[in-house]
Simulated scan of single mutants.
Amino acid sequence: MAVVGTPTSATAKNMAVFIDADNLNDPTALDHVLLAVRSMADRITYRRAYGRPESLKSIHAVLWRHGVRPVANLIVDKTTTDSALVIDAVEAVCTNDIDIVAICSGDADFVPLAIWLREKGCKVLCYSLANKIFANPDSFYDDVVLLDVVEPKEEVALEAPLLSQSAVMQGAEAHTPELAVANPVPAARATTAGTAATKAKTPQVKATVVSGPSVKKILSILPELKDKAPMHLSQVAQRLRDGGVLAPNAKPILLFRRHPAQFELKPEHQPNTVRYRG
């Protein structure tokens, strides 16, 4: 069974994973990504994370668990994360037979890299926190996986006087299913009705693969577009929703911008019509 949010069509002989730790530095989300990519290739040749020392420190346990090499920024006035990642990604593809490259960042600065990698024949994936992704990423990546980390509510008993605030854990320890009891107590007291430990559940990751219908599918729902006459987006949106290819609250603009060679949006800055170029 594929991990939730994994592009099931993505398989490769060799894969490279490059992590922008200044952008994707949530340990739970990153752990989900690294688990997901394991089944996507025979071998992951490159596993590297780039960022400021404090960014890398926040995810060090996950990097160690998955054998990811941390690459700290040079000590200069400007952040060097993006440049170091791009240089290593280009070198990796030029010197190895890489089929898939996963860029773990929602930063738009990696768009030129994604385009270059696709021109070289690589399948390029983007993994990003949903609140840190730039607009229209699926126009540049073959697959985009957006991650939401959901913190579960703690189940606390009405009477739990034996726990102290110092029992709250951080980092990798946050995955422990139960908080430690601050002071040992006699068994008789521990079994008294109403006494229970606070349980901290592991945060869950909701991952969604951003995808859209093909041009052929769009034209099958909107055959009028084949006449190459402009159609108003409000009319188009309703038809696409009725056809099951557009979510109730989604905007059709993003869908058509995935296919700039086939569809023209007008006016450019605030489009309200779409025309099929043919």
Rank of each mutant, 00 (worst) to 15 (best):
L125C: 08
F134G: 02
H259Q: 05
E91F: 03
L158G: 09
I253Q: 11
K217H: 07
I59A: 12
H66L: 07
V274W: 02
I100R: 00
L240R: 06
A174T: 13
G121A: 06
M40K: 06
A12G: 12
E178C: 10
G106N: 03
V86S: 07
I100C: 00
D82A: 08
A247Y: 12
D148W: 07
S166K: 14
R65S: 12
Y50D: 06
P248M: 06
T192G: 05
C94E: 15
R277Y: 06
V209F: 02
A229Q: 15
D99C: 08
E159Y: 11
I103M: 09
V76M: 05
A200R: 15
L147W: 04
I59T: 13
H259P: 00
P177V: 13
V101L: 04
D107F: 02
A190M: 11
T273Q: 14
K153W: 07
Y141D: 01
S139I: 06
K217M: 07
V111R: 03
V168K: 14
G278H: 06
W64M: 12
N249M: 12
L255I: 04
A187G: 15
L117F: 04
Q165W: 11
A49F: 09
R38I: 06
S234R: 15
T95F: 07
A247I: 03
V86L: 03
D22A: 03
K120I: 01
L255R: 00
A160S: 15
V205Q: 01
H259Y: 15
V145H: 01
R277Q: 14
R189I: 14
I221N: 01
R258P: 02
D20Y: 04
D82S: 06
G5N: 08
G243P: 01
D88Y: 04
A61F: 13
L225E: 00
Q262M: 11
H66E: 09
H269E: 15
G171F: 04
N25D: 11
P53G: 03
